[in-house]
Computed example of a mutant assay.
Amino acid sequence: MDRRSLLTGAAALGAGLAMPALAQDAPLKVGLILPLTGPFAAYGQQIEAGFRLYLERHGDGVAGRRIEPVVQDDAGTADTTRRIAQEMVTQGGVEVLGGFGLTPLALAVAPVSARAGVAQIVMVAATSSVTEASPMIVRTSYTTPQVTSVIARWMAGDGLSQAMTLVLDYGPGQDAEKTFARVFAEAGGTITESLRVPMQNPDFAPFLQRVADARPQSLFVFLPSGVGAPFLKQWVERGLDKSGIRLVADGSVTDDIVLPQMGDAALGLVTGLHYSAALPSETNRAFVTEFMERYRMRPNFMAVAAHDGAHLLFEALKKTGGDATGKGLVEAMKGMAFESPRGPIRIDPATRDIVQTVYMMRVEEVGGQLWNVPFHSFEAVADPGKA
C-alpha cells in the first residue's frame, strides 16, 4: 500500500498514522502555506523571506537532508489552507508544514497534522489555544496573552490605575482583552469599559467617540498588523492625542513593516511586543542588515519567527539524524533553547509554546526613520494561562 492510501485510510477511520520516514539522502520538503495575495499578503512575504534567509545564511542541508521549501498561497482563507495542507501531505511528499499567518489558518490545518503525524510549525498565529489543537503543533511566534500580560503589568507599574480597552473582535483580540483585564485588575487597576471593533471593514470612529466621551486615564489597544495606521490617523484627527488619555498598544499596531510610513501620528507611542528591528544586540543587527540587503524591506516579528522556525527544524533534525517523522521531530523540538535575533527563546516541553523576552518600546525617530526603540524588558515570559 502506498503512502497516499495509508493516509486516506487513516483519515477515513479517524485515526492518526505516522508517515514513514523518507530516505535520509532525499530532499525534505517543507510546506510553507502563506497568505501571499489578499489583505494579508505582507504577512506571507515576511514569513517566506525569513525562512529563506535562514537557508541562505546557514545552507540548505542538515543531517543528510536537503531542505526544499514548497510555498503555496492560501490568500488568508482557512478552507484553502486546509485543502493545500491535505494535498501537500497526501500527494506532494511534504514532511513538515509551516507558516500560518492567522489563527483560523493554523486551526484549519490542525486536524490534518494530527491525523497524518506531520510536524506543524506555527510562525504567526497567536491565539493561545492554537497549540492545543494538534499534538503536532510547535509555535515559534508568540501568544497574545504572553505580550498583553506584560503590557498590563507595565501600565500598572507606571502609575496607571484606570483603563479602557479597544480590540479587534477576533480570536487574538478577545485573548488580549481578557488577559489585559485580568492582569490589570490583579495589579490593582480598574477597567472602565471594553470595546470590540468588528473585524470586517473596521470603522474606529464610533468607538473613538466613546473613548472621547468617557475620557479614561488610559486606553489599551490591540489591532493586527496593518490596521494600526488608520486607527492612529483617526486618533489624531479627533484630537485624542492631545486629550491627556495615555495610549498604550500591542506592538502589532506599530509593526515594523508599516511603521516607516505611519508618520508623526506614531511618535512617542508606547507599545509592547517580543521583537523590534531596533533591538541593539549584535545577533539582531546582523539579521536586520542581511534581511534588508536581500529583500529591501525591514523585517518584522513574523520574519524573525520564520527564521527561528527554520533554526528549530534544523536543530531538531540534527537530533533525529534527519528523520522527519512527526512525533519524533516534535519530541526533539520540545525544550530546545537558543539565541534568536529577538533574544533568548525556549520551547516549553509541556505546551510546545515559546518562552521569550517581551519588550516595552517607544516610537522614536532615529536616522530620519521611525523605529520601535526598546526601553524595558521582561525576560523568560510564558503564556500566563499555560505557565
Rank of each mutant, 00 (worst) to 15 (best):
P344R: 11
G31Y: 00
G343N: 02
P111V: 11
L312Q: 04
A266C: 03
A108N: 07
P39F: 06
A116M: 09
E87G: 15
T165Y: 12
A108W: 10
T90L: 13
G92Y: 00
A306L: 03
L102W: 09
A212P: 03
G16V: 08
Q72K: 15
L232V: 11
A21Y: 00
A310K: 09
T103E: 03
P299G: 04
A305E: 00
P280H: 10
N372L: 12
G335L: 06
F378P: 01
Q261K: 15
V197I: 14
D264L: 11
G38Q: 08
I151T: 15
P280V: 13
M262T: 06
A205R: 15
V30Y: 05
F301Q: 14
G157K: 05
L247W: 05
M155E: 08
D60K: 14
G38D: 04
E331Y: 06
S113G: 03
V253L: 15
A15D: 07
G76A: 09
S377Y: 05
D353I: 10
R139W: 04
M302P: 01
F220N: 08
S134W: 05
P20N: 08
R246F: 13
R362S: 12
R52S: 06
R362E: 15
L13D: 09
V138H: 08
F40I: 14
P104K: 10
D256Q: 06
K318N: 03
P224A: 12
L107F: 05
G31D: 00
D348P: 09
M155A: 15
E87F: 01
I137R: 01
V358D: 01
R139E: 01
G9C: 07
V112E: 00
G385M: 07
W371R: 15
Q200Y: 07
G263W: 08
P172W: 08
M164Q: 09
L6I: 13
F287V: 02
A11Q: 11
P69V: 02
Q146G: 04
G16T: 14
W154H: 15
I245S: 04
A185Q: 14
T127H: 13
V227E: 14
